[in-house]
């Protein structure tokens, strides 16, 4: 592991791409599986943050350089915004910058700063849910046309606008757990094997 330079090399960029792909696939897989049950769908950010913690921790320890987290953020943002949710690209980039600064404060060495940065970055796992804020009026309107005003009203009641704050909260909680679990797994499996 060449940690002498703090600049991203081509090799790091390829690793970044691979881990970004893994991150996004798991993110979407969990949301899709849980999406079948409405209540589970709403705790998907929590579960996602825990699972993605391992990937994030592995990635940042493998590429401990400035810009690595930003690239991940850009990739996640780009893919989650394919559903037309522009907000999520900006959201992911902002989280990426904050997480990057936290890790930078830890000089790319401190494990605590990595876990803390993940608590922030984990909020990206709720980025597909910006759809709720963004496409809700259209969604409700369409429900009304199809299934009547009753159903639309029920749906409206179940998704108040503050639900986004709740989602961010549980994502951060999941992020804390995920970060801790991730760093533990890393120690148990990968540092011995010399992968990172």
């Amino acid at each position: 592991m060449s940690t002498k330079t703090n600049k991203l090399k081509t090799k790091d960029l390829i690793v970044a791409g691979a881990f970004a792909a893994l991150y996004v696939v798991v993110l979407f897989a969990v949301v899709t599986v849980m999406g079948f049950v409405p209540i589970l769908y709403l705790i998907a950010p929590f579960v996602n943050s825990i699972i993605l913690g391992c990937i994030y921790m592995m990635y940042v320890t493998k590429v401990p350089k400035f810009g690595a987290i930003l690239i991940l953020a850009a990739a996640v943002g780009l893919l989650t915004s394919t559903g037309g949710v522009w907000v999520s690209l900006i959201w992911c980039l902002a989280l990426g910058i904050v997480a990057e600064l936290i890790v930078r404060a830890g000089k790319y060495k401190s494990k605590k700063s990595y876990i803390f940065s993940y608590v922030v970055f984990a909020c990206s796992s709720m980025s597909p849910f910006w759809m709720l804020a963004y496409a809700k009026p259209a969604f409700i309107q369409s429900c009304e046309a199809y299934y009547g005003a009753d159903y639309a009203a029920t749906l409206d009641k179940f998704t108040p606008s503050w639900i986004l704050l709740v989602l961010i909260g549980i994502a951060m909680l999941g992020g804390l757990i995920g970060g801790l679990v991730g760093s533990k797994l890393l120690k148990k499996h990968f540092q011995k094997a010399g992968v990172v």
Binding site: L13, I14, G17, A21, L22
Partner: peptide
Amino acid sequence: KLTIPLSVMFRFI
């Protein structure tokens, strides 16, 4: 810095 990760990502999925 973005073209390589993004290209790799789309092929990696």
